[in-house]
């Protein structure tokens, strides 16, 4: 499911089945030295999560990404966000990011961390294969939570 009008309507009638929220955490950096890497990582995470959504459409909702910079990161209360999502009925709240600093939160949060792969130079076919490979790594992580 995406967070849009149609999908959400379906979500409301099928909460028993759509029990997982996938929340991308995007680290944005704008200084000249880092902006390229940051935008590339963003592209990677957005493409990958859309792909995950397609695979698990009926079980998870892809929440719009939460973005932060170095300066604003502290304002991001992920624990509260998690609780809020849980109280609306998501049994599993899973964060996905390319920012490794979140791995230190793995006691309180379910975090999937992936090193970003630059997709911009790839043609469509290669891109798809790369994303498929990444998806294969994510599937067991998700299903191990479910089953």
């Amino acid at each position: 499911m995406f967070f849009n009008g149609n999908d959400v309507q379906q979500f409301q009638t099928q909460k028993d089945f759509i029990d997982t929220a996938l929340v991308p955490l995007l680290f944005l950096e704008f200084d000249d030295a880092r902006i390229r890497q940051s935008s590339s990582a963003t592209d990677f995470l957005m493409s990958l999560t859309a792909f995950v959504e397609q695979q698990f459409k009926g079980r998870l909702m892809l929440v719009p990404p939460f973005s932060y910079t170095n300066q604003t990161k502290d304002g991001l209360a992920v624990n509260l966000l998690k609780e809020e999502l849980q109280s609306t009925g998501f049994k599993y709240v899973i964060f996905i990011t390319t920012d490794h600093t979140w791995t230190s939160h793995s006691e309180q949060l379910d975090v999937i961390w992936l090193p970003p792969i630059p997709l911009e130079s790839m043609d469509k076919g290669v891109k798809k294969t790369v994303l498929e490979e990444q998806l294969k790594q994510i599937i067991p992580v998700l299903t191990s939570k479910w089953y």
Partner: peptide, 25 residues
């Protein structure tokens, strides 16, 4: 998948070989 639209895979459930399997439910 005709349930809620996930993508099914062939032969991916070891307990039920030679079937299409939907990991969602």
């Amino acid at each position: 998948c005709k349930h809620l639209g996930c993508t099914v895979n062939w032969n991916s459930d070891t307990e039920h070989p030679n079937q299409f399997f939907c990991a969602c439910h």
